[in-house]
């Protein structure tokens, strides 16, 4: 395949791929569709900067990826952070506020996960998924960049405009909530 752009065939050739790529990173169907459409339209404005060093699909995906990161970033800005507050309230009583020791009730207990081998079975993926869905969008985008795109910590921080210490706090809080949710819902 030669590296040339052919906008007349963009949708036919790449729309499904780009849409699936987006949906793996953003669960909102409508937003995902808009981002794909938006990608094509802004790509048209950039055709002059396409140098043919990558394939058409790779080039379009890079444009899309920037748009997805913009969405993540929007979610980390102040106004939309009600979901972060809610998630933080969930763990407000996890630790004693004086010395940081586990409170009795929320402290880790033995449950089914201790005998479970995730490498052997995917039996409990649906519970994990249910618990992941409760996480704030910003926390979820950190997980997505880390596990799906396998980005390094400093890249994630730079792209989401987070400080490194903020990043550890997010990972910590997300895992605290996930573990608690799994303990509660494991059957």
């Amino acid at each position: 395949m030669s590296n040339e752009l052919d906008p007349h065939h963009w949708v036919k050739a790449h729309a499904d791929y780009l849409y699936a790529y987006t949906r793996a990173r953003i669960s909102d169907e409508e937003l995902a569709r808009d981002l794909v459409q938006d990608t094509f339209l802004s790509a048209l404005e950039k055709v002059g900067s396409f140098e043919g060093r990558s394939s058409e699909r790779t080039w379009l995906t890079a444009i899309l990826r920037n748009k997805i990161i913009d969405q993540y970033r929007k979610k980390s800005s102040g106004l939309l952070n009600a979901d972060v507050q809610r998630a933080e309230e969930e763990q407000a009583d996890f630790f004693n506020s004086d010395d940081g020791h586990w409170n009795n009730e929320p402290a880790p207990k033995h449950f089914g996960i201790d005998e479970y081998d995730p490498l052997q079975s995917k039996e409990f993926d649906h519970i994990l998924m249910k618990c992941l869905k409760k996480l704030p969008a910003l926390w979820m985008s950190v997980f997505t960049m880390k596990h799906l795109d396998e980005e390094q910590t400093d890249t994630i921080c730079a792209e989401l405009k987070l400080t490194v210490s903020n990043y550890w706090v997010i990972i910590h809080r997300a895992k605290l909530n996930l573990r608690a949710c799994l303990q509660k819902n494991w059957i």
Partner: peptide, 8 residues
Amino acid sequence: IGQMIKNL
């Protein structure tokens, strides 16, 4: 849990 997330 980290392994499970990674698998997923």
